[in-house]
Amino acid sequence: MSSINKAHVYGDDINTDLIIAGKYTKTLNMAELASHCFEDIDANFTTKIKPGDWIVAGRNFGCGSSREQAPLAIKHSGIQGVIAKSFARIFYRNAINVGLLLVVCNTDQITDLDEISVDLFNGSVIINKKLKIPCEKLSPIMQQILEEGGLVPYLCKRGDF
């Protein structure tokens, strides 16, 4: 799993209301959901990102609500994954369950529009083809869920845990 794409850098404590406001969560239409992603932090978000890009953030990304619309909005905006110093736990589960990549590492040296390449299975993030930052590995069950493409395909295949 390796690709090269750009970083869009945000700060600490990016909460689920900032990712997708409560008023937009009442829909099953993913394109509509994604069109409001990050609206309250960065009005240009949906126009500036390219498919495969990464969100980079500080501590406690995804804190707040259990709304799965948060990782879904990010995923359907075209973002490949989120790289942060730490994630709130419900967001963390939800992202893996819907097949959004999450990487935990020290993001201090990543700046806006840096080129990012992630090698999750060897546990590293490479910035601008030069700097290599070690990242945490997923627990085996999360790795299996992600390998299947999320919890739905995981359970479709196995029928049970």
């Binding site: 709304r67 419900i90 939800n94 819907v98 359970l155 049970d160 845990f161």
Partner: peptide
Amino acid sequence: GVGSTDLGAVLLTGK
């Protein structure tokens, strides 16, 4: 708290 997909799995498996 969990997300919707996790809860869907609980509905399906009880686990």
